[in-house]
Amino acid sequence: MSEPIKEFTTAIPFWSPRVTPVELDQASEEQLDAMKVTPSDTGVSEYVLVLAHDPKTLKERTPLFNGIMYSRGGLSRPETELGAVAASVVNRCIYCAAVHASRYNELTDDESVMEAVFSRGADAELDPRQSAILNFATKLSKCPSEADKADMNLLKENGLEMDEILDLVLSTSLFGWANRLMHVLGDPLPREA
């Protein structure tokens, strides 16, 4: 069996669960409803099948996740992804970092930002607005949060409006949630060539 990936990458790994997922053909009505699948579906991810062990939380979490990451207005899509990646770097969630860094790269057609974040973390040299976002999201992801008024003022000084800051708080915090599932309940493995 391959060894789990330890270094950040934009190549999306295979996620291998550490606990036994729900068997789709044995899933209850409540689990199927939470997974938003019909019994004939075959494309359900192992991750969703693991989370289906707690259908009540999964049912609320999926629309919450989509609402934070893909709602119109507010913070731009790439900057929303930057908040997600900053949290994933603090929490060393290789899988989430790969998915959201590669989304960032697709959206911006610029790989230099994620290369810098992966190699230097919060010290990455980015443009002032990106730096302010990375700084705030990194500090908010610590336990306890290290973000303070000065970090918030830096966001404002770099042109972020309050609705954008709210979206940044939400996407960063959401990955405080997602990382604690992905990184704890499974291993990121290299995909077969």
């Binding site: 606990v19 989370l51 062990h53 918030m152 940044l168 708080v169």
Partner: peptide, 29 residues
Amino acid sequence: EDIVRLSELIAFVNYQVRVAAGLRLMAAV
């Protein structure tokens, strides 16, 4: 089942405390 439920509880609370902290900082400025 309980491992996943515990994981979701931990993950949710760690999300919620960060949103609360962020909102309070937003209110402060």
